[in-house]
Design a protein around this nucleic acid. Structure first.
Lengths: 203, 203
DNA sequence: TTCGTACTTGTACGATCGTACAAGAAAACG
DNA sequence: CGTTTTCTTGTACGATCGTACAAGTACGAA
C-alpha cells in the first residue's frame, strides 16, 4: 500500500496553515443510504485486495471517491468499517446462493450442476478471497460470527432436501476445501473429479 | 492492538535528547541462528493472534523480548517478516504430518484414525488459524505459494498409497473444509460424521 | 594478539494511521 | 418562514508504523 493515489478534488494540502477566510463550500446531492452502500462496497473491494488487516478508512475513501470524513461518519471505528465490508460481501453471497437454489432444484444432474456452479463462482477470485477473509476474521472475532451464517449454512440448507442433511453438510465442507485449494494454487477447478466426489458423498 | 506492552529493559525514552556520553552498552551472548528462529516463532504467534496484515516488527520484537533492531536485521522488510513467520508455521505442520504418516500407516481403521488426528489438530486453534492465514496470504501473493506446498500436498501424499490419488485429494479437500468450518464456528468436530464421509470418499 | 566482519542496540525520520471535531450546507419539520 | 436535525467536508492531533543508520560489541580468522 505504498503511495495510494490521491483522492481527486479534495484538500490539496491536508495539514496546511489555518485559512482565516473559509469561503464557500460545495456539497453534492445527499443520499445517505446510497453512500453507506457505496462505502460498504468499496470496503469490500479493499478487503479483497489488501486483506482485512490492511484495510483503512483512507483507502476506502479513496476507492469510493469520497472524503475521509464520509467513512468515519458512517463507520466511526475500523472495526465498524470491516464489519460493514464483510456484511456487504455476504449479502452478495446470499444473492448468489438464491441463484444456486433455483438452478440446483431444476437440475437433472445435481452433482454436475453443482460443479458447474462452483466453476462459475471461482471465476471471480476477488469475491472468493473475501469469503475466506471473512472466515478468518470470524475465527478471530466471535462478534463477526453471525455474518458467517449464510456462508456456513446457506448451501447445506439448499442441498438438504435433495440429498439429506448429512450429505448436504459433507458436500458443503468439500466445496469449501476445493474452493480454498483452487484459490491458493491459482489453478482451475478439476470438474470431473469434483463431480465424482460429490456423487460419492451422496451415496 | 492498542497499547502493546513496552519491551522490558530497553530505551525508556525512544525519541529523547541526544546524550553526549553514550557510556557502556551491554549485549547478550550471540546465537544468530537461534535468534532468527525465535523471531520466526514470535512472528508466527503474532500472525495467529493479530493476522498477517496487523503483524508488525515492533509487535514481534516485544513478543520475542528483543529490541526492534533485531527484527529488522534478520527480516528487513515486513514482507520478509511475514514470510518467515508463515514458513515457520509450515515447518511445524510438516512435523505434524510426519506423525500423521506414522499413525495412519499403522492404523487398522484409517478413517477413524484420520478423524482422531483431525480432532487433535483442532485442539490448538491458534495453529490452525495460521494455516488459513497462510492460505489467504498465498492467494494474494503468488511468491508465497511454494510455502503452501506442504499444506496442499502433504496429506494427499500420505493417503494416496492407501486409498488412491483421487480419493486422497478429495479427502484432503474435505478435511480442509471441515477444519475451516470448525474454526469459524468455534465448535468441536463431528467425529462420527467426518469418519462416515471419509469412508464414502474412499469408495 | 590484532583485525575485520557479523551482529547488537538505541535512536531517528517521514509517512500513515485511527479518530475527533468545527464549520457549513442540505433536508426535515414546525 | 425559521429552526432543528442530519449530513458533508476539511482539517487536526497524537500514536504507530516501516525502515534506516550510527555507534558499539562479540567473535572468528590471521
Amino acid at each position: 500500500m505504498t503511495g495510494h493515489s490521491a483522492t481527486p478534488g479534495h484538500s490539496p494540502t491536508p495539514d496546511a496553515a489555518p485559512a482565516p477566510r473559509p469561503a464557500r463550500r460545495t456539497q453534492r446531492a445527499r443520499d445517505p443510504q446510497a453512500r453507506r452502500a457505496a462505502l460498504a462496497a468499496a470496503t469490500m473491494e479493499i478487503i479483497a485486495e489488501a486483506g482485512a488487516g490492511r484495510t483503512t478508512h483512507r483507502a476506502v475513501a479513496a476507492r469510493a471517491g469520497l472524503p475521509l470524513g464520509a467513512t468515519t461518519y458512517y463507520f466511526p471505528t475500523r472495526d465498524d468499517l470491516i464489519a460493514a465490508g464483510l456484511r456487504h460481501a455476504t449479502e452478495r453471497l446470499r444473492a448468489d446462493l438464491d441463484e444456486w437454489a433455483g438452478r440446483l432444484t431444476a437440475a437433472a444432474d445435481l452433482p454436475a450442476e453443482l460443479t458447474e456452479l462452483t466453476r462459475e463462482y471461482l471465476a471471480d477470485r476477488r469475491q472468493v478471497r473475501i469469503e475466506y477473509e471473512l472466515c478468518l476474521a470470524a475465527a478471530r472475532d466471535a462478534t463477526l460470527r453471525p455474518i458467517t451464517d449464510v456462508w456456513m449454512n446457506g448451501l447445506p440448507a439448499i442441498l438438504a432436501p435433495a440429498v439429506g442433511p448429512d450429505a448436504a453438510r459433507d458436500i458443503g465442507a468439500l466445496l469449501d476445501g476445493v474452493i480454498l485449494r483452487a484459490l491458493v494454487t491459482g489453478t482451475d477447478l478439476d470438474a470431473p473429479g469434483l463431480a465424482a466426489a460429490i456423487r460419492r458423498l451422496i451415496r
